[in-house]
Write a protein that binds this DNA or RNA. Structure first.
Lengths: 227, 227
DNA sequence: CCCGCTATCTATCGACCGATCACCCAAATC
DNA sequence: GATTTGGGTGATCGGTCGATAGATAGCGGG
């Protein structure tokens, strides 16, 4: 009644994969194949025609959700010297927030983390290397501080960018995991958060830079610089 | 070998409850009672002498973790007029971070959220009503803005405090869910985040207050005030 | 030292769940 | 319209898991 009975192999596989994403990100990877099949309007053994076992199906869900999430234009955007750094950073975070604050992404990300996958850490290492470094570079430049080439990025600076990242991502957690209400206009909030970051952070960064140009590999300690 | 064979009912129950917390916060609530029993060094049916079923065991875990997490002194601390507001807020967040950034809390909180419990929203509503309101009140006073009695707290103000909360809580998520490295000295980072909040936020808050004293129940819109 | 209480164990049930296999039938081909 | 191909189903197996019941054994009171 709902859909054609016989589909081409490709079509059916895509349908199953799409359904699996929706299903597992709702109930978690403990969800049963029979229940998934029911939602898809097919019988459970059919899943095993397209995927050798449940784990393969889950892998496919990961692939489906993790790939195609990264937008290579983000890096270009942050590198685009024709626009003011401030504007670029805000534009990036607005875009990033839009990509990341979705039911599927937030929940799959959490589920995979809790399951002990290292997908999260791999993804976030990418974010740190490709995004955070650029954001910090631009903030430094904007405020006349030394470039990362001159003074390597310190732990505290990464923490400050982490904090911005967190405050955006947590909006999604509040909504899609805790089930809380969030502001209607998320765009506006994200912009305000980025603005607040750009306004407030340089002071802290400057303080850190003047006293302690420490790299990630801890430098030898010789007494405490003033806080 | 490991422990006495026969324990008193109370003792055994506490042992099971403690073990259940450790177990379920590691593997999630899908964990098997047999595995839990094995870790406790007892047989699986023994669990059912102390808890009628698995769900009751899980409920107990929730109770064990959620209760005793709230420190009533937090409110007193934030209300204590004898200390400068700035100092109080920083002291509170350092304390709060210490209470909240634990393996058990972070993971149980996430698991319960993903499971669709409303424990999270109930807990966080408490946090908002008891903590956020006080923080905002103090920030307002510190910077000579009208009190919440005069001008009700706006959505944006809550969002800013949410952001600070998020950036602290996310440190725990990074460590205990994603398995990432975090700074050795979390205390220091939390202090810097709170400081950065106190330095950067008032400007945004003031801007919001001057233009729009909106309550949580949306006020009628009549054109846009300047951003 | 023996008895009774009960904490704990062994054995097992019934439902569930992932996976398999033999079979069916819709659609493409000639 | 007969044949072939392969998408789809029904039935079922073996293992897992929550839960139960009866047997066992450690501890306290007399």
């Amino acid at each position: 009644m709902a859909s054609k009975r016989r589909l081409s192999a490709d079509e059916r596989e895509r349908l199953i994969a799409r359904g699996a994403v929706a299903f597992f990100c709702e109930v978690g990877f403990g969800g049963q194949t029979r229940e998934l099949a029911k939602r898809l309007g097919v019988t459970q053994p059919l899943l095993y025609r397209y995927f050798p076992n449940k784990e393969a199906l889950i892998d496919r869900v990961y692939r489906e959700v993790y790939l195609n999430r990264w937008d290579p234009r983000w890096e270009e955007l942050l590198d685009d010297d024709s626009r003011p750094a401030r504007e670029r950073i805000i534009a990036f975070y607005r875009d990033y927030a839009k990509a990341v604050l979705s039911y599927e992404w937030i929940r799959i990300f959490m589920f995979s983390g809790l399951r002990g996958m290292n997908l999260n850490s791999r993804y976030l290492t990418l974010v740190r290397d490709r995004i955070y470094t650029r954001v910090i570079r631009e903030v430094r430049r904007e405020y006349g501080m030394p470039s990362p080439a001159e003074v390597p990025i310190g732990e505290l600076e990464f923490e400050l960018v982490w904090a911005l990242h967190a405050s955006i991502f947590y909006i999604g957690i509040r909504k899609w995991i805790y089930g809380l209400e969030i502001p209607e206009n998320v765009d506006e909030v994200v912009e305000k958060l980025a603005t607040s970051f750009l306004d407030g952070v340089p002071a802290v960064m400057a303080r850190a830079l003047e006293g302690a140009p420490k790299t990630r590999a801890a430098r030898p300690r010789r007494g405490r610089e003033r806080a």
